[in-house]
Design a protein around this nucleic acid. Structure first.
Length: 271
DNA sequence: AATCGCGCCTGACGGC
DNA sequence: TGCCGTCAGGCGCGAT
């Protein structure tokens, strides 16, 4: 599933194919994504030139002079650059067609993703305006998390998934970072001290950056590739490894359902 | 303000 | 083999 590193890898992959291109049309085969693809984007995006591709959390933003396309890949979404004549599969819901005959093709079997359009500053859009800081933002450190979590009783795993606190951390990376920092996923966020937040924040950064680097090195071509584009095998230390030995102490890893999502952890290394 | 559960959707997987 | 139930999960949203 696309987590922040995959979204960033996607951004980097499509950027050279998309920036400076003029959109000649939008092909919407199925508008029923998480939210219905709006008619406004069908009317207004064609004729515009893409100025930039940026990322906020797990949202991708394709800016034009008159508005911005907001893309989210949800659970199963992916983007490829293909020739517009290439046959589309059942899950290829939208093509953004360019003046050179290529298109940006959105595939999303589960349709948890989204394609929206805004004419205002996209960062003021309802979906983006409440997002917390980017975990990779220059200057951000563990003190931010420490200060924001005083008095919070919720477990740290759930707290890290709250995009209003910090953007773009999904279940996989929350679990991986907590393992690296040696913090138990159910520890109350408000009971974690300043130096532990420093190491947790470093672990978050390291995990995300490592995955982005891995994405960059194993990146398949975003142009006309088969299968899933640009994604990469994650090397995960705890996620999905219930019952397997901890890489540090060999203790069998555990899985526990916290809220709606499963937490994976080492009962010995994480306290 | 913080927290909690729901629901969207379909491929994968296990059991029979 | 084939059918069926269950699970997974991002995340906005409404309720508490």
């Amino acid at each position: 599933m696309p987590e922040l590193p995959e979204v960033e890898t996607t951004r980097r992959g499509i950027e050279p194919h998309v920036v400076g291109r003029k959109v000649t049309g939008l092909v919407v085969r199925n508008p029923r994504l998480r939210w219905r693809v709006p008619q406004t984007i069908v009317r207004e995006l064609p004729g515009q030139t893409i100025q930039s591709v940026t990322r906020r959390g797990k949202y991708l933003l394709l800016a034009t002079p008159i508005g911005t396309a907001i893309l989210h890949l949800g659970m199963s979404g992916s983007l490829r650059v293909v020739n517009q004549n290439q046959a589309a599969s059942a899950y290829d819901h939208v093509d953004i067609v360019f003046d050179n005959g290529e298109c940006l093709r959105l595939r999303d079997p589960r349709r948890f993703g989204a394609l929206l359009w805004t004419r205002q500053d996209p960062l003021l859009h309802k979906l983006l305006k409440s997002l917390g800081p980017e975990p990779l933002a220059v200057g951000l450190d563990g003190d931010y998390l420490y200060k924001k979590t005083r008095g919070r009783k919720r477990g740290i795993r759930d707290t890290l998934l709250d995009s209003r606190l910090i953007a773009g951390i999904g279940n996989i990376y929350a679990n991986e970072a907590l393992f690296t920092a040696g913090i138990h996923p159910t520890r109350a966020a408000g009971k974690i001290n300043q130096s532990q937040y420093q190491s947790l924040f470093r672990a978050i950064r390291q995990t995300l950056e490592g995955a982005i680097q891995a994405g960059g090195t194993t990146l398949r071509d975003f142009y006309a590739s088969d299968g899933k584009p640009g994604y990469f095998q994650l090397s995960l230390k705890v996620y999905g490894r219930e019952g397997e030995p901890c890489l540090t102490c060999q203790t069998p890893l555990r899985a526990k359902k916290l809220g709606q999502r499963t937490a994976f952890y080492c009962p010995k290394c994480q306290r």
